[in-house]
């Protein structure tokens, strides 16, 4: 299909370990279309982060095929096809927020004027434009993570990969950032892969929810969300929302029973 951004077929990944091989990913088949927001949810060891790392070419699958933008993951990485957001904001304490965001642009060889403009644009996008000259330690944890998202958006990557970006934040900050992330996604229409532990977070944000199970890491359910694109926070109390959350929970439980 032409509009497939990510295409995985029969993906396998086995790590060697002293206690015998660990089957991190087993027969993962998944198509992600342009503009989708896909959440990966499951207990630790289910391979959700590993799958994201395969897409980013930070891990190499041992079997099956995986394409990103029609390229191999490593070609996609070299073409800077994606921006990656880790759980730790990973901002350098010796650089201001603005200079942190322009670091990937410097590395990629953007001109100085282009860097300044792009940094300014993404800072406005995450509402941090007044903090360009502050240092990371002068910002709260939530603001730091917003800066880290801005950094991933600064170069025009087609795909945004997020590995539990709000995992270390408290629930109140998390709720607000979820809302902001949803607004950001609607504005940029960027294909987003989002790893999370939280069922409400996954249901609230996603157009598609991938439920995974450990030993071996595999997909147990793929849910296409019927929720509308406009989602106020209180959508989480509607029967539709609760029905999807229920299905996710069932999928997680099923995976645990088999394992």
């Amino acid at each position: 299909m032409p509009d497939d951004v990510i295409n995985a077929a029969g993906l396998d990944l086995t790590f060697p370990s002293p206690d015998g091989p660990v089957h991190a990913l087993s027969d993962i088949s998944l198509d992600i279309n342009e503009g989708e927001f896909v959440s990966f949810i499951g207990p630790s060891g289910c391979g959700k982060t590993t799958f994201l790392r395969c897409v980013a070419a930070l891990e190499t699958p041992t079997g099956g095929t995986l394409t990103v933008n029609g390229m191999t993951p490593d070609e996609a990485r070299k073409a800077r096809a994606y921006g990656y957001v880790f759980q730790a904001a990973g901002l350098y304490p010796w650089r201001t927020i603005g200079r942190n965001i322009s670091l990937p642009l410097e590395i990629m060889g953007y001109s100085k004027s282009d860097r300044t403009k792009r940094t300014q644009d993404v800072l406005e996008l995450v509402e941090l434009d007044k903090f360009a000259n502050k240092y990371p330690w002068q910002l709260s944890g939530g603001m730091q993570q917003r800066a880290s998202i801005a950094r991933a958006l600064a170069f025009d990557a087609k795909v945004l990969l997020m590995d539990e970006p709000f995992g270390a934040l408290d629930e109140i900050v998390r709720d607000r950032l979820n809302e902001e992330l949803l607004a950001l996604w609607k504005r940029t229409n960027k294909t987003t892969l989002f790893v999370t532990h939280s069922i409400p977070e996954a249901v609230y944000l996603s157009t598609k929810i991938v439920v995974m199970s450990p030993r071996p890491g595999r997909i147990t359910d793929i849910i296409d969300s019927p929720l509308p694109h406009d989602r106020p926070l209180d959508i989480r109390d509607t029967p539709e929302f609760l029905a999807i959350a229920h299905r996710v929970r069932e999928g997680l439980r099923e995976g645990m029973e088999v394992a």
Binding site: A56, R77, Y84, F86, P104, I107
Partner: peptide, 8 residues
């Protein structure tokens, strides 16, 4: 890893 994702 972040540096690697930027192909630095």
């Amino acid at each position: 890893d972040l540096m690697r994702t930027w192909n630095a």
